[in-house]
Simulated scan of single mutants.
Amino acid sequence: MSIQSVVVVGGTRGLGLAVAQAFRSSGARVVTVARGASDVTGDATDETLADKVLTEHRPDLLVITAGAVPPMHPLTEHTWESFSANWHSDVRIAYTWLRSALRVPLRPGSRVVVFGSAAELHGSPLSGGYAGAKATVRLITRYAAAEGANLGLTMTTVLPVITPGTTIGDTAISSYGPRPGPTPSALAASVVSLVAGDFITDAYVADPEGRLQPLVR
């Protein structure tokens, strides 16, 4: 599929920035949404903002990468506020933009890629509710994909492993130690390739080289 127009939510740092740059290099028109230094400045949890951006730009591809850096503590040192941080950011952002994609709606044939995390498969004991929040992001995406099929929309989730060179990846490495992981640009290139073909499953897991493999459950 040829992608002409892309909206990247959280496209000014980390994997979101790499994805935005990769699609710009492929010739697509890319609009980034973030709190600062972006094409559209705002809070990604704002439902009105999501509706406005998708109504105005009607992208062929929506990529949702935004989320919070999880506080890293043993369970005994977490508060409920720190433990639940990613539920109030990552889950809400996925809910907000997926709901908007269905309500606006995006044009038939449009695609949505939501970034989760391989932490949901392996656990992340120092990051509070992060792994559970990412599992819920994948579930929400599956729910939206089922509704979106009636509108001609296709949606999938990408689950990266720890990715050095990103804020979340470097935070995890500082707590767990060095881990093999892809560069942001390698993973972004895989996302470009993924979108060019057909989504054959509802989730893909990135390996340490950034290649995307269908999630087998």
Results as ranks from 00 to 15, higher is better:
residue 121 L to Q: 15
residue 135 A to T: 03
residue 89 S to L: 13
residue 130 Y to S: 04
residue 88 H to I: 13
residue 104 V to A: 06
residue 33 V to W: 12
residue 65 T to S: 11
residue 53 V to P: 01
residue 118 A to N: 08
residue 35 R to I: 10
residue 142 R to Y: 07
residue 31 V to A: 12
residue 64 I to T: 06
residue 97 W to Q: 13
residue 87 W to F: 15
residue 58 R to Y: 04
residue 98 L to G: 15
residue 129 G to S: 06
residue 56 E to G: 03
residue 68 A to T: 05
residue 142 R to T: 08
residue 36 G to A: 15
residue 62 L to K: 01
residue 123 G to K: 05
residue 73 H to D: 06
residue 126 L to N: 06
residue 52 K to Y: 02
residue 110 S to D: 15
residue 26 S to Y: 09
residue 71 P to A: 14
residue 82 S to I: 12
residue 110 S to A: 14
residue 113 V to G: 02
residue 139 L to F: 09
residue 91 V to M: 11
residue 82 S to V: 13
residue 110 S to C: 12
residue 44 A to L: 05
residue 109 G to L: 09
residue 62 L to D: 04
residue 64 I to Q: 04
residue 127 S to G: 07
residue 57 H to T: 12
residue 94 A to V: 14
residue 48 T to C: 02
residue 113 V to L: 10
residue 73 H to L: 01
residue 126 L to D: 02
residue 40 V to H: 04
residue 140 I to L: 15
residue 98 L to V: 14
residue 134 K to F: 00
residue 125 P to C: 05
residue 68 A to W: 07
residue 39 D to W: 06
residue 86 N to W: 11
residue 92 R to I: 13
residue 143 Y to G: 14
residue 123 G to E: 14
residue 100 S to L: 15
residue 75 L to M: 07
residue 38 S to P: 07
residue 82 S to K: 13
residue 78 H to F: 00
residue 68 A to L: 07
residue 62 L to A: 03
residue 104 V to M: 07
residue 72 M to N: 06
residue 102 L to A: 05
residue 102 L to C: 07
residue 136 T to N: 06
residue 62 L to H: 03
residue 66 A to S: 13
residue 67 G to A: 08
residue 140 I to N: 08
residue 34 A to Y: 08
residue 134 K to R: 12
residue 103 R to M: 13
residue 38 S to A: 15
residue 139 L to Q: 14
residue 50 A to S: 04
residue 122 H to M: 07
residue 107 R to Y: 00
residue 115 F to A: 01
residue 134 K to I: 01
residue 123 G to D: 13
residue 136 T to Y: 04
residue 39 D to Y: 04
residue 140 I to A: 11
residue 97 W to D: 13
residue 140 I to T: 10
residue 70 P to N: 04
residue 105 P to W: 12
residue 62 L to Y: 00
residue 41 T to D: 07
residue 84 S to P: 03
residue 78 H to Q: 08
residue 54 L to Y: 01
residue 137 V to K: 02
residue 112 V to H: 02
residue 50 A to N: 03
residue 86 N to S: 15
residue 70 P to Y: 08
residue 45 T to L: 00
residue 63 V to E: 01
residue 40 V to K: 03
residue 30 V to Y: 02
residue 96 T to Q: 10
residue 91 V to E: 02
residue 54 L to V: 10
residue 116 G to P: 03
residue 122 H to W: 03
residue 104 V to Y: 07
residue 91 V to R: 09
residue 108 P to A: 13
residue 65 T to Y: 01
residue 45 T to V: 01
residue 73 H to P: 03
residue 89 S to I: 12
residue 38 S to R: 02
residue 97 W to S: 13
residue 31 V to I: 15
residue 98 L to K: 10
residue 47 E to T: 00
residue 142 R to I: 08
residue 47 E to W: 01
residue 28 A to N: 14
residue 72 M to L: 15
residue 117 S to A: 15
residue 72 M to W: 08
residue 27 G to R: 12
residue 40 V to G: 01
